[in-house]
Amino acid sequence: MDKIIPASLMVSLNASWRPEPEYNAVYVSGTHAGVAVNVKRQGSAGNDPAPDILEDWLTETQVNTERGRNELAKGGNQSVTTIEIPLTDSNTAPGLVEPGQLVEVRDSLLNGTNNNWRALCLATSIGSSGGKVTQRLELERHY
């Protein structure tokens, strides 16, 4: 994880549900040259394919496989969760959270259950009010 955020730091939290189709296979190929790869989610039958991906630059097996993995990874139940936390200096965690970083929100234990969750930071905006500087983070969270 790039940043760890204790839930106790959160000033606000808001989530917008954004489910996507959960495909388990995708065909990836170059359009005029290269290789064709059928990427399948491990442990699945590969019976629910995403639309084929055909692009000129897809000419190598490793590249095509990774492109397929990325396509399959973006599906399923997810939300865009917006949290607001104080902007701390670079010596105090979490510091500035930047887009592209992976974060873990460490929630307190509830009934002995670990409620920690991980997300990808999509956007960061900085604001100030009453002499306090905060950062608002848009996080892509998969369930």
Rank of each mutant, 00 (worst) to 15 (best):
G68C: 00
V26N: 02
N91Y: 12
N77S: 11
S108T: 14
E55G: 02
S90I: 09
A50G: 05
L102Q: 12
L110R: 14
S29H: 07
S12F: 03
V37D: 01
L120D: 07
T31C: 08
E104G: 03
R106K: 15
D89K: 01
V39H: 00
H32Y: 15
P86E: 01
A15P: 00
K3E: 08
T65I: 10
D48L: 13
I5P: 06
R136E: 11
M1T: 10
P21S: 06
T92G: 05
A33T: 15
E20F: 10
W117A: 04
E22A: 14
D48E: 10
N14Y: 14
V28N: 01
S16E: 14
E20G: 03
T59L: 05
C121T: 13
N115H: 13
P19F: 00
Q135V: 10
L13I: 11
Q101R: 02
Q42Y: 15
E98W: 12
L109S: 13
L122Y: 08
L87M: 12
V28E: 06
P51N: 06
A33K: 10
L54Y: 06
V80M: 07
S12T: 13
S108V: 12
L13R: 15
A119C: 11
I126W: 03
D48Y: 15
H32N: 13
I5T: 07
T82M: 04
S79Q: 06
P94H: 04
S44Y: 12
A7Y: 14
E55F: 08
R106A: 11
K3D: 04
V37S: 01
L96V: 09
L96A: 12
S128Q: 13
T124H: 09
G34R: 05
P99C: 10
T81C: 05
A7L: 08
N111Q: 14
E55W: 04
L96K: 13
A15N: 06
A7P: 05
E138T: 12
T113C: 00
K132S: 14
V97T: 02
R67I: 13
S12N: 13
L13M: 14
L109V: 09
P6M: 00
G34F: 02
N77F: 11
W117T: 08
S125V: 13
N24H: 00
D48H: 13
T61P: 05
G131D: 03
N24A: 01
V35A: 02
R136T: 15
N64F: 04
V35K: 03
S12K: 01
L87I: 09
N70C: 08
E71L: 06
G75T: 10
L9H: 07
G75C: 03
I5Y: 02
S79T: 07
